[in-house]
């Protein structure tokens, strides 16, 4: 499965990348929302995992842009912090498909990705 990860924290980004690589996915990492949008347009991934708070373009903007301009069928998992329920709801209204609250377990993320992967098969 082709996955784009948009996360500004390098450690978290790499952790998610390595976990998903281990599961056999093809992963492209982006350090901010702007790069993520470029990559999404370029490679048309099968799944997007995006943090909410990011420089230049936020996770919400990514959800909005993907669901309106590009292919809306690409599922998006939002990574949110504790106490960001309002923003998560906004993300869902914009079309996000799932969310994970930080702190999160990489194993749980892997399972959620697996679920999306099975759905696409």
């Amino acid at each position: 499965m082709k996955i784009v990860i948009a996360e500004d924290d390098e450690l978290i980004r790499k952790t998610i990348q390595l976990r998903l690589l281990k599961d056999g996915h093809e992963v492209v990492c982006c350090e901010n929302g702007l790069v993520a949008l470029e990559q999404i347009e370029k490679i048309r991934p099968q799944l997007i995992i995006s943090d909410i708070m990011m420089p230049y373009v936020t996770g919400l903007e990514i959800v909005g842009t993907v669901k309106q301009s590009y292919t809306p069928e690409i599922p998006i998992i939002i990574l949110s912090g504790m106490g960001q329920e309002e923003i998560v709801l906004e993300a869902f209204q914009l079309g996000a498909d799932d969310f994970i609250t930080k702190p999160f377990s990489p194993n749980e993320l892997s399972l959620r990705v697996k679920r999306f992967s099975q759905r696409q098969k």
Partner: peptide, 15 residues
Amino acid sequence: DKLLVAKKNILGHSA
């Protein structure tokens, strides 16, 4: 600092 960032963001066995 890196360990603290990881601990803040990660749960379960990884934490």
